[in-house]
């Protein structure tokens, strides 16, 4: 092999080695200058966390996962390399969680206190913390797959419920339900008709009730006024005066009653004479009705009535003629 060939081959090989080694160190973020510090965290399970996954603090990448290994008592120990310049929380804890929908996971550092409100996360952190040691307590959130599996299970349950509802509401049940709805509609129609028919009566009853109520209100007002007057009268001693007046009036009434009794006694004494007068008057009226006597004849005989009428008519004609032709009947001469 020529020397130039050897040089070219050697150069190519060295360059390739440099590329491979340099690229590998760069891509793996190997801490050549010891700028990073190694920490450990303890998990029951790390989920999808893997070597090379990012370690974040308040959303900022501060390191990477260097190793994951199983340890005793069914724990998983994870080794992180974190930038030395990063100021960590006073009591760090780690939550492994899915960082995206594409399967990327990250380890998120936060302060252990206060504990998260999620009960599962809280219990996992407490359990990991109680295990002791220098490792940070760690917990893992369910990944998208678990969530979708849970959602799928819920969807299955909903499907079962739907099927059961479908079985419960078969064709017969549906027909019965339809018939029930029709019956209910018919009952509703009848109720509407009945209500329409009873509206007038109900209105009248309402009016009566209103009138009665008004009457009661008037009575109440009257009674209230009477009570007020009674109160006023009681307050002004008018009641006493009224009672006194009533007593006087009662005495007068008793006196008038006594007078009336005496008048009635006198009338009873003259009853015989009065009966006789009545009988005579009755006899007289009977005779008049029978046409006896002058009055009877005047009352019953029409001939006399007509003649009398004719006489009156003729007398009026005479007077009229006298008024019209006074000289015919009166002849007055002074001289």
């Amino acid at each position: 092999m020529k020397r130039s060939n050897e040089f070219a081959v050697g150069l190519a090989v060295l360059a390739a080695l440099a590329l491979v080694i340099g690229g590998a160190l760069w891509l793996s973020e190997t801490d050549v200058n010891q700028k990073q510090v190694t920490y450990h965290a303890r998990f029951r399970t790390v989920g999808g966390l893997g070597v090379g996954s990012p370690v974040t603090l308040r959303g900022v990448r501060v390191g990477r996962v260097e190793a994951i290994r199983l340890v005793e008592e069914e724990w998983v120990e994870t080794e992180f390399s974190i930038d030395r310049a990063v100021r960590l929380p006073g009591r760090p804890a780690v939550v492994s969680a899915s960082a995206s929908l594409f399967g990327e996971w990250s380890a998120n550092i936060f302060n252990y206190e206060p504990l998260p409100t999620d009960p599962n996360l809280r219990n996992a952190l407490l359990e990991s913390d109680q295990a002791g040691g220098d490792a940070w307590p760690g917990a893992t959130l369910p990944d998208i797959g678990q969530l979708t599996a849970q959602a799928s299970r819920i969807a299955g349950d909903v499907g079962d419920i739907t099927n059961r509802i479908g079985q419960a509401f078969d064709s017969t049940a549906l027909k019965n339900l339809q018939q029930s709805v029709k019956d209910l509609a018919e009952i509703s129609g009848r109720l509407v008709t009945f209500a329409g028919a009873q509206t007038t009566r109900i209105d009248r009853v309402s009016q009566n009730v209103t009138t009665t109520s008004d009457a009661f209100a008037g009575v109440a007002r009257t009674f209230q006024n009477a009570v007020a007057r009674l109160d006023t009268a009681t307050a002004d001693n008018e009641l006493k005066d009224i009672l006194e007046n009533s007593r006087v009036s009662s005495s007068d009434l008793r006196a008038a009653a006594a007078d009336l009794r005496s008048v009635m006694a006198a009338a009873r004494d003259n009853q015989a004479g009065l009966v006789s007068v009545v009988q005579q008057a009755d006899s007289l009226m009977t005779r008049i009705q029978e046409g006896n006597g002058t009055l009877g004849m005047l009352a019953t005989d029409s001939t006399l009535y007509r003649e009398t009428t004719m006489t009156v008519i003729q007398f009026r004609e005479l007077l009229t003629d006298i008024k019209a032709n006074p000289k015919k009947y009166l002849k007055i001469s002074v001289f």
Binding site: V20, G23, A24, L27, S28, G52, S53, E104
Partner: peptide, 17 residues
């Protein structure tokens, strides 16, 4: 680079070589 480094394993290189 984040994606490039995120899923990088040293095996990727020596597997290809």
């Amino acid at each position: 680079l984040k994606g490039l480094k995120l899923f990088y394993r040293f095996k990727d290189i020596w597997f290809g070589l």
